[in-house]
């Protein structure tokens, strides 16, 4: 398979996943807002931090108001990671591999992009937001399902899986990173109750709440949620499961030794770290390490499989 095609499929999968995850992020934050104790302000800035876009955001907006953050994350064309930009990138990548991706996959992606573009204004209103984001999430999942159900398990499919799961692993760490920051600094009975709500919201943003209840069967607490989201091997958005899946996709390919080694080290790191005991700063440092390893893995893939960058 062509190197360029492998790269395009990989990015298409990442961009679809990114659009979906961004929609989840916005949606959960908006819901959390409704559960806040009176007098507590929910900051929208952490959402910008999650996607690592503080600087570009500040260049374009003076304050991190709900409205500005929404605009930036949903429809801003200058934000390369906004939902709209991600879907556009996914579509452009898909367009160049239309000979590989099943036709219906392209049609659904095209349709989802057109929906996202045509309805962006309604998605920015409080009343229209829920329907808009839900459509993005179910639309992305529909495409993933369609591709899983129709693509031959050849190399193209492996790059799709690798891209999707790498992006997913990355986003899971980002969501934990920002949402694990205590919203209510003082220790009060009220804040204790809210702590639970906050961790439920983390689970919800990853559609993990039901699975957590079934697989862990305990109350929602920080320690258990961290173990679940980092180390669980069965839940598809848990970090450990994501990197297992990346490994499954990578292993059968030629020249995969270096990437497989990075994944093995990463897995050891995740499983050996007592994540339940990590408080704020150590947790943040741990997440930083994971994210650097994900970037490192991307670089290995680039070197092993993608087209050489043109010297300019």
């Amino acid at each position: 398979m062509l190197s360029r095609v492998a790269e395009n499929i990989y990015w298409m999968a990442r961009c679809i996943e990114r659009a979906e995850n961004t929609a989840r992020l916005v949606s959960v934050n908006a819901n959390l807002l409704l559960d806040l104790p009176r007098g507590v302000q929910l900051d929208w800035e952490p959402l910008i931090t999650i996607v690592g876009m503080n600087q570009p955001f500040r260049e374009r907006y003076s304050e991190a108001s709900e409205r500005n953050v929404m605009r930036f994350l949903i429809g801003d064309q200058n934000n390369p990671n906004s939902i709209l930009s991600s879907l556009r990138n996914a579509r452009e990548n898909c367009r160049t591999v239309r000979d590989i991706v099943p036709r219906s996959g392209w049609e659904r992606l095209n349709e989802l992009f057109l929906y996202a573009k045509d309805n962006v204004n309604s998605g920015l209103t409080k009343g229209g937001r829920y329907a808009y984001l839900t459509r993005i999430i179910t639309g992305s999942q529909g495409i993933s399902g369609l591709l899983s159900g129709t693509m031959a398990r050849d190399e193209a499919y492996q790059f799709l899986r690798i891209g999707r799961n790498l992006e997913r692993a990355d986003m899971t760490t980002r969501i934990i990173d920002v949402r694990s920051t205590d919203l209510l600094p003082e220790e009060t009975p009220e804040s204790k109750a809210f702590d639970t709500i906050q961790w439920i919201s983390v689970l919800n943003s990853l559609s993990a709440y039901q699975a957590y209840r079934r697989l862990v069967q305990v109350q929602v607490s920080r320690a258990e949620v961290l173990i679940f989201l980092f180390q669980n091997r069965l839940f598809p958005r848990a970090f450990n499961h994501c990197i297992d899946t990346v490994k499954d996709g990578l292993q059968p390919l030629k020249n995969s030794q270096q990437g497989v080694k990075v994944l093995a080290d990463l897995k050891e790191l995740v499983e050996a770290t007592p994540v339940n005991t990590l408080r704020q700063t150590p947790l943040h440092d741990f997440i930083d390490r994971l994210q650097l390893e994900v970037i490192n893995l991307h670089k290995v893939l680039e070197k092993s499989y993608f087209l050489p960058r043109l010297e300019t």
Binding site: M1, L2, S3, R4, V97, R98, L253, S304, L307
Partner: peptide, 25 residues
């Protein structure tokens, strides 16, 4: 069922044959 290629996907080697750059060489 043909490959869709751009110029940068192809190269001509010293044997005067045309090759495409794939993930397995």
């Amino acid at each position: 069922g043909a490959e869709l290629v751009e110029g940068r996907d192809l190269f001509v080697d010293s044997d005067d044959k045309v090759y495409m750059r794939t993930i397995s060489g």
